[in-house]
Every structure is written in C-alpha cells, then in structure tokens.
Amino acid sequence: MKTTYKFGLLALLAFAISAFTVINNFKSSDEDGYKIGDKATDFKLKNIDDTYVSLSDYKDAKGFIVVFTCNHCPFSVAYEDRIIALDKEFKSKGYPVIAINPNNPAKYPSDNFENMKIRAKEKGFTFPYLVDEGQHIFPQYGATKTPHVYILEKSASDFIVKYIGTLDNNYQDAAKVDKYYVKDAVNALLDGTEIPVKETKAIGCSIKV
C-alpha cells in the first residue's frame, strides 16, 4: 500500500515535471517574443571591433533596423548587400542598421566571432555586427531564424517595435523585388504615416542554440 502510494507520488511528480517541460517547450516556440507595439530591450553586445554596443549609445537615432543575421545561412548571405544598402540609405536619416548574430558558434563554427570579423570585412559592413554572447537577446525579441528584422522606434528612452519580418518579397533576386517591406516601414516612420505592412514571414535558417 505504502509502496503504491510512493510510486503514485513519484508518477505524479514525473508527470508534473514533464508537463512543466512541455509548457516550457511550447512557450519557447513562437509564443514568446515581441509583438508590434511592445517595448524592446536594450542590450550591450560585443561588436566585431571588440567594443560593446547598446541602442542607448545612439543619442541622435530616431530608431533602429535590428537584423538578426549570420555568416553561414544562404538566406542571410542573399540579403547582405541589401542590408548594407539599408544602412547607407537610413543611417543618415536616423535609422541605422544593427546586425546581431544569434547563433551558437559551438554549433556552427562558421558563425564564430573570428569569422564574423572576416565576413564583415569582406562585405564592407557599414554597421555594427554584434554577437549575442550567451544567446540572451534573440529569445527576448522572439527571433527564430536568420535573417529576421525588427524595426524599433525610439520614444523617450524606450524602443518600440514597429515592424517584424523580412526585408522584401524576393530573397532570390533583388532585381525582382516589388515589395520593400523594411524600406516602406522606415519611410512611413520618418513621414509619420501608417506602416503599410507591419509583419511578414520569410524562410530562414533556424537559430542554432
């Protein structure tokens, strides 16, 4: 009797633990992360020049184009030139690009810090390329893949999420794009008009944890 009771308790405990795990797994999928209008966290992440970068460093910025990206993912690579072009177009207007590599370098050595430096130099990145050391930032944003863009608008000391998604509607060929989601969103923010499309989906490489 006593043994049965103990066993029952153990089973209950096991059940409770597994239930908790299931809930946690569930939460860590797309339930977490920012929605449009949420306040985004600032961060202090290491840049490829070995300095640390925070959003609050940019006193004059009106906002940011935060791009979770990496070295190895072909979708990220396909967008590199377009990310550089975004920075060139919008940095002077108050919306600089901040690139963050969220991948675990142990899982993907081509995404390690040294290779980030090499890739940034090869491509001539004009923006910070930060490493999400310990992978604490991307889950808060809710990024699931690379590339994954968050446009933030500065409001007093807060950073408000205004757009989540992909850069445009053709990852294969920049010449065939006819919907410039990120450009249109930043231009709308600069003009003080409604952002035409606030959320989009795109294929990307799952973030390696």
């Binding site: 797309d30 893949k145 989906k201």
Partner: peptide
C-alpha cells in the same frame, strides 16, 4: 508560408 501553416515563422 502562412498557407503551409499559420504557426510557421519560416525557419527550417
């Protein structure tokens, strides 16, 4: 992507 599943963020 949403036609395949509304739950899909797009990661593979």
């Amino acid at each position: 992507i949403p036609k395949v599943s509304p739950e899909w963020s797009g990661a593979i």
